[in-house]
């Protein structure tokens, strides 16, 4: 077991020059899939101070694997820490994304299916229904007693045009405990600061930075569809991809109404290991 762990860690540490061309989005999914055989390890953090509640830090560790060119599978572990309260593990998610159309089109659809089992979750990876300030008011000891077992479905639409990526997500969530369907949306647009690559190997060339905007929010539920009493967020976002496969992302997002958390600060770090299982085959280093 220790030996296997050592091999795994070695593979991560010596993986060298690797690809990373991530979009700088925290909530919105683009239509771009994980390359087959690649493993991406990501950590996302969000810091917020809901009105009338304690400041919190929500964290997610994500493992994403490209099963096929048209199928990406990801597993998440979530946790959160709340000031003047406690730090807890909040649950897990397992998602799968399927790209039904081969090749690149004007608009590229991707189907997303996720199962999650969480409690007192504060990672805000999506906003649906009437999610808002009030959900963050309960102390962790109370909130973690209420488990949410949910199925989440998304229709992801993405386009690339003249260096711009424009992505839209339509979200539907069903709590398996006989609660109504909840809906949400997210959209984002981004572009590299420079389209052509540099002839020299450089870590901080403009083409390694991508900047854009992101907006997302709830759309109510089956009985009260619309934006009434929903939280909405909007903000700029930027990322930097290092030549060695690490991507750092940052965004400040602003709540657009009193129902939203006034400000969210998001930081993400991801690392991509190309041809992960190939590293364990002799002669394929």
């Amino acid at each position: 077991m220790t030996f296997r762990l050592t091999i795994l860690l070695s593979a991560v540490l010596v993986s060298g020059w690797a690809a990373a061309q991530e979009r700088p989005y925290f909530v919105t999914y683009s239509h771009e899939m994980e390359e087959p055989g690649n493993l991406e390890i990501e950590m996302f953090n969000v810091v917020g101070k809901p009105t009338g509640a304690n400041r919190f830090l929500g964290s997610t560790v994500e493992l994403g694997y490209g099963v096929k060119t048209w199928w990406t599978s990801e597993f998440y572990l979530d946790g959160q820490s709340t000031a003047n309260d406690s730090t807890i593990f909040t649950g897990f998610r397992w998602e799968n994304r399927f790209r039904p159309l081969m090749g690149e089109h004007w608009i590229n659809p991707v189907l997303y299916v996720e199962f999650e089992n969480t409690a007192a979750d504060k990672v805000l990876r999506e906003v649906v229904g009437h999610d808002g300030n009030a959900d963050f008011a309960d102390p962790n000891s109370v909130a973690r007693a209420e488990h949410e077992r949910e199925m989440e479905f998304k229709l992801i639409l993405g386009s690339n045009f003249r260096g711009w990526n424009i992505s839209e997500n339509i979200i539907a969530v069903k709590n398996l405990a006989n609660e109504p369907w909840e809906f949400g949306y997210a959209w984002a647009a981004s572009r590299p600061l420079k389209l052509a690559a540099s002839a020299h190997k450089c870590a901080f060339c403009a083409d390694r930075f991508q900047a854009g905007i992101e907006m997302y929010g709830g759309l109510g539920d089956r009985y009260s569809f619309g934006t009434n009493q929903t939280s909405q967020y909007f903000g700029p976002t930027i990322n930097w991809s290092s030549p060695h496969g690490t991507t750092l992302s940052f965004s400040t997002q602003f709540g657009l109404n009193d129902y939203s958390i006034p400000r969210l600060y998001r930081i993400g770090i991801s690392y991509e290991i190309e041809q992960f299982f190939g590293r364990f085959h002799r002669g394929d280093q």
């Binding site: 061309q21 683009s30 081969m102 090749g103 690339n160 990526n165 389209l195 052509a196 690559a197 083409d207």
Partner: peptide, 18 residues
């Protein structure tokens, strides 16, 4: 566009000049 059935992913995420 890639050749997705053969395992080649599309690289449309790279800008056209690249």
């Amino acid at each position: 566009n890639g050749n997705m059935k053969k395992g080649m992913p599309p690289w449309a995420k790279l800008p056209d000049p690249q």
